[in-house]
């Protein structure tokens, strides 16, 4: 079985993201870029499945400009066997990403596709579900536990009400949550080995995917600042104030 893992190049989670003064975007000048942390967890899970003998090959896929090769190399250094860059100069919205991934799936015929539950830049949380829909295969989102049993998998999902368990037939799309595993650190010698692993580059056009139906992204604004509220004198006033606001 092959496992396909999607990884996205995003502004590192430690970076304090700041909206540009003219509202045209966020300041990415000189900021650290990383693999989306949820995708790192997806890759770690794929590697563990492979290393346990339940898959033969782990392929990392990313859509973007050539700069995303850096993140693909990180994936290879973590242990993926090969990488595919879906080359596009435009930032893809989830539907286009899902369509492009579907084309790669048709070429590679994976038994499992693992993705992060969302990317920490646009926070869309759509691509995995869209891919499953287009592929007409099962989806299991926000996985905190994944067990393979032959042609199916048992997935524990983190939902608002607790932990939901579902069983899905493979092939399927699983998107992963924070608690699934702790990704490994990359070993220095593996960085060197990763330089020699294969990286295929295929353009969006070659895949036959056209970008359609994009949402138009307009003005960027910083979040509203919280303002100073009122002061109360004692516990009784506090309780009254909370009751007035319907909070008690």
């Amino acid at each position: 079985m092959k496992i396909l893992v999607g990884i996205k190049r995003v502004v590192d989670y430690n970076v304090r993201v700041r909206v540009l003064a003219d509202g045209s975007g966020v300041d990415t000048d000189g900021v650290k870029m990383s693999v989306n942390p949820f995708d790192e967890i997806a890759l770690e899970e794929a590697l563990r499945i492979r290393d346990a003998g339940n898959a033969e090959e782990v392929i990392v896929v990313s859509a973007g400009g050539d700069e995303c090769q850096q993140q693909l190399r990180t994936g290879l250094a973590m242990g993926a066997d090969r990488a595919i860059q879906i080359q596009t100069s435009e930032g893809l919205q989830p539907l286009s990403t899902a369509r492009a991934f579907l084309k790669v799936i048709e070429r590679e015929d994976p038994g499992l596709v693992l993705l992060g539950k969302q990317a920490i830049d646009d926070d869309n949380c759509q691509t995995g579900q869209m891919l499953a829909a287009l592929w007409e295969r099962p989806q299991a989102t926000s996985a905190s536990k994944l067990e393979l049993n032959g042609n199916s998998a048992t997935v524990v999902r983190e939902v608002d009400a607790g932990l939901e368990t579902i069983e899905i037939d493979l092939p399927a799309v699983v998107t992963v949550d924070l608690r699934l595993n702790e990704p490994r650190f990359v070993k220095l010698p593996d960085i060197m080995k990763a330089k020699r692993k294969p990286m295929d580059v295929v353009s969006l056009e070659e895949l036959g995917v056209a970008i359609e139906g994009n949402l138009e992204i307009g003005h960027y604004a910083p979040p509203p600042q919280r303002e100073q509220g009122i002061m109360v004198e004692d516990a009784a006033q506090l309780v009254e104030e909370l009751k007035n606001r319907g909070l008690l």
Binding site: N181, E182, P183, R184, F185, K187, L188, P189
Partner: peptide, 19 residues
Amino acid sequence: MGVDSAGKHKDNYMQGIEI
């Protein structure tokens, strides 16, 4: 890398290499 505050190895412990 991957050593906890008490000095124990965490799940993702990785021994540093020699250069």
